[in-house]
């Protein structure tokens, strides 16, 4: 297992009438947490399942460390994946679920206990899964992914059902994996979530790649999305002096104004020249949410 890079090339999946994934290409680097982002129904899960050999691609390839998943000799030792919170036998204990997987992967049974300890499920190890909360099932899914101490980790919506404390735990866990040089690919439909833990993002909508890159690059993306918050007692005078179109100014809920299309220094200079009092002048970091909505608007609908 040399690098653990994930390479997706021209991946396409055609279900009867729906093209769930459409000529999708992206790469995921080791040592970083990559958020795999898209609205519900964008094709995230289908893509991950193709990557893991569970769904057959109509065309294109997806490789992990240069090999297809089905060709990996000891897959659980190379790739750990957690796909669905519901995919456990309800009448089996969490520990037994992991032991079944250990047996199939040729791992010693005590790996199951290690993994349970890692996700903090040891007290519930001998309880049946039907008594688990959604958050506990998510933890069990993550434990299943960590059984073989793999270089590559792939999780589908792992933060679903986690409480704030659980999400913080997840964030720490994922970044610790990345710090150890592992490849971490995590899907989500919630941007706020991805913004919290991802270094890179791959954004898809309607099965197509919208954008790939580091999170900062995306949030600093284009000037149009950049907003500056202005608080002033004389807004009409200031915006008149700036000769801004009406659409460039929006009132926010706290009595301030969000201005687009001009820079901070431009506003400050105009205010000084017009003799307008300024109480606040703050460039807003465009959040991923906004960028995302802009990027995916019109492509996200139900197919």
């Amino acid at each position: 297992m040399a690098d653990g890079q994930i390479v997706v090339t021209g991946l396409t999946k055609q279900f009867r009438k729906v093209r769930a994934v459409d000529n999708l290409s992206f790469t995921v680097q080791p040592g970083r947490v990559t958020g795999f982002l898209g609205p519900n129904g964008a094709g995230k899960t289908t893509t991950l399942r193709m990557l893991l050999g569970l769904v057959t691609a109509t065309s294109g390839t997806a490789t992990i460390g240069g090999r297809r998943y089905v060709d990996l000799p000891d897959p659980l030792r190379i790739v750990g994946a957690g796909l669905e919170a519901s995919s456990f036998h309800k009448g089996r204990t969490g520990r037994d679920h992991l032991r079944v997987l250990c047996a199939a992967a040729g791992l010693p049974a005590n790996r199951a206990d290690h993994a349970l300890e890692m996700v903090g499920l040891t007290p519930a190890a001998k309880r049946k899964v039907k008594g688990y909360s959604l958050g506990m099932k998510q933890r069990l899914g993550i434990a299943a992914g960590m059984l073989g101490d793999p270089q590559v980790l792939i999780f589908d919506e792992p933060a679903n059902g986690l409480d704030p404390e659980g999400i913080r735990w997840m964030r720490t866990l994922l970044s610790s994996f990345a710090d150890q040089g592992r490849t971490v690919l995590v899907s989500s439909h919630l941007l706020s979530e991805v913004q919290l833990f991802a270094d890179d993002v791959v954004i898809i909508a309607a099965g197509k790649l919208i954008r790939q890159g580091p999170v900062e690059e995306l949030t600093n993306l284009d000037g149009a999305a950049r907003q500056i918050r202005v608080v002033t007692p004389e807004p009409d005078k200031l915006f008149g002096a700036l000769e801004l179109p009406r659409t460039a100014v929006a009132k926010d809920e706290n009595g301030g104004f969000l201005v687009t299309g001009v820079t901070g220094p431009q506003i400050g200079k105009a205010a000084l020249a017009a003799g307008v009092e300024l109480h606040e002048l703050a460039p807003q970091r465009a959040d991923l949410e906004k960028v995302f909505l802009e990027l995916t608007s019109g492509k996200a609908g139900i197919r």
Partner: peptide, 18 residues
């Protein structure tokens, strides 16, 4: 059929892709 009823097929085929 348990594998599909309880959706454990995913975990099973991840551990043994063949």
């Amino acid at each position: 059929t348990n594998e599909f009823f309880h959706q454990t097929a995913t975990a099973t085929f991840l551990a043994t892709p063949k």
